[in-house]
Write a protein that binds this DNA or RNA. Structure first.
Lengths: 349, 349
DNA sequence: TTGAAAGCGTTACCAT
DNA sequence: ATGGTAACGCTTTCAA
């Protein structure tokens, strides 16, 4: 059933029926009631295709996941994020369009999306330190929000990010306070913005105590379990192994744990491990496993906030760029102990 | 730039330009060339909203993820699957619409999607043993493909599934051949179709040797690391613990490994572990970690195949239901050894 | 408060 | 081979 049929059936004009259904004030309460009931009864909802053409709005939001040729992994955080955002879209009658786009045809895909008018705005995932998509979308005039930031881009733009720098500064400071001096960092790929900010926080905590990061304790790579396993083995083989390790995600942390177990080492006693876990919700450990968890933020809530910001930019117009920085919650578990040498002193004293 | 402007610019009618761009045969080669060049130069692509209304097709496919109130976890396989499917859609000019729908407003969401005409077809994820969505979509006349199956639904419908039954039958048979008799199964939620089929394969392998599954060795739960950890501890505490364990996913398997390590047990020597891993691709272990891997299938390829089937159902009409059963590849690693008692015999002999 | 009619930007039918 | 025009199903402007 379409609008014309429904209005014929009611003995009203399509105009009035449309108005009644879209909450226009100039329609009488009596008519509105009648129309609404008839619509429900005949299971009518306006044809999305016609509505989109008539209003000039796509009523959909694009979520664009970058995927380079070498690194085909999709961030696990994504599923949770999209759940939160999708819910908000649904409330406002928007659809969520998902597109996995390879780096190489990035520009074409974005231009096409804009000129086709398939979306009213997009969310950018996985921003690099210097991400070309921001300039591109600005040029295209397509409203967007970045999930994360792109530090080397100077222009203003909308973003929602978690305070990665601060989270890693606090985690590092925690370990330093426990007496650790050789702290390893297993970070994500160096060109990812979140990884750069985490590294910055790490460096700042050290600098505050006049310490400098040691190159052989720092690594950047895609966050797989294998990475954690192999890297931890390398670290243990160093002349002076670290007494503590900060891991950028739960996935490589699983590998780290395996390497420690293989080496017969005990968490918190022989070595301290701090994990940052945007990802933890995915594992649903219910507070059980990694007791050595350090920080966590609600990924789903971030999705909701991002959606909110984008919808606002679309409906209420661009205005000044909006930025929201979410603070990660610090949780300290039993796998963070004093440095071995420190504990020896404590025991002796 | 829209069609009218482009055609004015070329001194042609919109009709001709549209035909040239859509590959109709009745347009002269010379004109087509001219039109194509002008379109590229002016960065013209037809407005998706207008096209959709004119053709009566949404040119988009919905992917519908169920999410119950209690179990908010999104299957990690999903990201890979959607990448494969999305690529195929893009090739055919279709957009991918993603919707996370809660069980409670399932019916309303589906009806709305159909009457709004927002999609030309949908892919159903995470089917239950008896999934009401199949009857609903059939009634709505919306083309669909199920990723997985719904065993207790008798009507025909399109599906793409991996041979879960066979994979678990083979895994179980492998362990039985190695001499194991007390084999535990850590399965997914009992009402999920994939879990039911895996259990069926497990039972069949036992039955083929006149063995029956033992209730205290079987468990069904959401596949978290915690589940693997706690369940493995329960199993080890049994009067007669299992000599082998089959785990339905890599996630709980990580918990199983942790429990074994905690208990001071060695894989393959003290206990055998077989993991089924649709999920493994996500971890990108590059053949390193779980050497105790049993089966694997290419999730991305499954996505592509599913997309292909749905597009065919949409464009070439419904026809007879299509079904594709993908075989899982069996890989046996070093963590599957003979049963402890068996090995003792071998050593003594 | 209601209705008629003009758009939205395509595609597709019918002429030429 | 090309063009005029209706149609797709809504929203929105202008009249009444």
């Amino acid at each position: 059933m379409n609008l014309k049929e429904l209005s014929d059936h009611l003995g009203l004009s399509p105009t009035t029926v449309s108005r009644a259904l879209n909450g226009y004030p100039e329609v009488s309460e009596r008519t509105r009631k009648r129309v609404e009931e008839a619509a429900k009864q005949h299971n009518y909802s306006p044809n999305a295709r016609a509505k989109r053409l008539a209003t000039g709005r796509a009523m959909s939001i694009g979520h664009l996941l970058p995927m380079s040729k070498e690194h085909e992994m999709v961030n696990p955080v994504f599923a949770d994020f999209i759940t939160g955002a999708g819910k908000r879209y649904a409330e406002e009658g928007y659809d969520l369009l998902l597109s996995v786009v390879r780096d190489e045809d990035e520009e074409e895909t974005y231009r096409d999306l804009a000129t086709r008018g398939a979306v009213d705005g997009v969310v950018i995932h996985g921003p690099k330190v210097n991400d070309p998509r921001i300039a591109l979308l600005t040029e295209l005039g397509l409203p967007f929000v970045v999930h994360g930031r792109s530090s080397e881009v100077n222009a203003g733009y909308n973003w929602v990010d978690v305070n990665n720098r601060r989270a890693f500064e606090r985690a590092t400071a925690l370990l330093l306070d426990l007496g650790h001096r050789r702290i390893a960092l297993l970070n994500g790929l160096a060109d990812m913005d979140f990884a750069a900010r985490r590294f910055a926080g790490f460096r700042e905590a050290l600098a505050a105590r006049d310490l400098a990061p040691e190159a052989d304790l720092i690594s950047h790579a895609e966050m797989t379990e294998t990475y954690g396993y192999q890297r931890m083995q390398e670290l243990l083989a160093l002349p002076a192994p670290p007494t503590a390790v900060i891991v950028s995600s739960i996935i490589p942390a699983l590998g780290v744990r395996r390497a420690l177990v293989d080496a017969g080492l005990k968490l918190a006693e022989d070595i301290s491990v701090v994990i940052h876990d945007d990802d933890l919700s995915y594992f649903r450990n219910d507070g059980d496993v990694p007791t050595y968890t350090a920080t966590r933020s609600s990924v789903r809530e971030a999705g909701r906030i991002t959606a909110e910001m984008l919808l606002s930019a679309i409906t209420r117009g661009a205005g000044a760029p909006q930025n929201i920085l979410l603070e990660a919650e610090l949780m300290v578990g039993q796998s963070t102990g004093p440095a071995p040498a420190v504990r020896r002193l404590l025991n002796e004293g």
